[in-house]
Amino acid sequence: MIELPKRHRHVIDAQINIVPYIDVMLVLLVIFMMTTPIIEQGIEIDLPSTEAKMVDFTQQQPTIITIDKQGKYFINSFNEDDSDIAKGEKLPLGIIAGRVSARLEIYPQMKVFVRGDRQVAYGSVVSLMSFLQKNGVDKIGIVTESPDAK
């Protein structure tokens, strides 16, 4: 009788090789770490520093009006969703006063703050505050930076 050769079964390795996945994850981690600081948007201003109390914004979102170095006005400029900031459009005082007045009708207890760059003329900040007071805003705060933050 003729003996047939025996077939050898190959051993199957049923484990997933995760080394390529780890490599991809590390590359993605490096990409996100490099692009996150670049993504920061908004208006770059150098706030004056002072010793002042902190304001709690947990109850309601305040209205913040920013004056940059060039004297341009922005409303709620800290927020990336504001379409005026995305376009870089300068807002005149009339539009800012109208928006603040509309928000005050909806939220009568809303806080209004002014963020003025350190290099902007003091008169610009005072004229903005005066204009807002003439248009129905009773209390206006000024945003500063603590000396420890630098």
Rank of each mutant, 00 (worst) to 15 (best):
L4H: 04
H8P: 04
R9H: 09
H10W: 04
V11K: 12
V11Q: 08
Q15M: 03
I18T: 07
V19P: 01
V19F: 08
P20M: 03
Y21F: 15
I22H: 05
I22C: 08
V24F: 11
M25T: 07
M25D: 02
L26Y: 01
L26D: 00
V27M: 14
V27H: 02
L28E: 05
L28F: 15
L28K: 01
I31T: 02
M33E: 04
M34Q: 08
T35W: 10
T36H: 11
P37E: 08
I38H: 05
I39Q: 05
I39M: 05
Q41W: 06
Q41R: 10
Q41T: 14
G42A: 09
I43N: 06
I43W: 06
E44N: 13
I45H: 00
I45P: 01
I45D: 02
L47Q: 05
S49E: 12
S49H: 06
E51W: 09
K53D: 10
K53T: 10
M54L: 14
V55P: 02
D56W: 09
T58Y: 04
Q59P: 00
Q59V: 06
Q59T: 07
T63L: 15
I64T: 09
I65S: 05
I67G: 04
D68M: 10
D68R: 06
Q70P: 00
G71I: 09
Y73K: 11
Y73Q: 11
Y73S: 11
F74A: 13
F74L: 13
I75Y: 02
N76Q: 11
N76R: 12
F78E: 11
E80R: 06
D81C: 03
I85S: 04
I85V: 15
G88F: 05
P92M: 04
L93F: 03
L93V: 12
I95W: 05
G98F: 00
G98R: 03
R99C: 06
V100K: 01
V100M: 02
A102I: 00
R103C: 03
E105L: 12
Y107H: 09
P108Q: 01
M110Q: 15
M110R: 08
V112N: 05
F113K: 01
F113L: 13
G116C: 12
G116R: 14
D117F: 03
V120W: 06
V120L: 12
A121W: 02
Y122A: 15
S124T: 12
V126A: 14
V126N: 11
V126S: 12
S127Y: 03
L128A: 07
S130N: 14
F131G: 11
K134V: 11
G136H: 08
K139N: 13
G141M: 10
I142R: 06
V143E: 15
E145Q: 13
E145T: 06
S146W: 04
S146C: 01
P147E: 09
D148K: 10
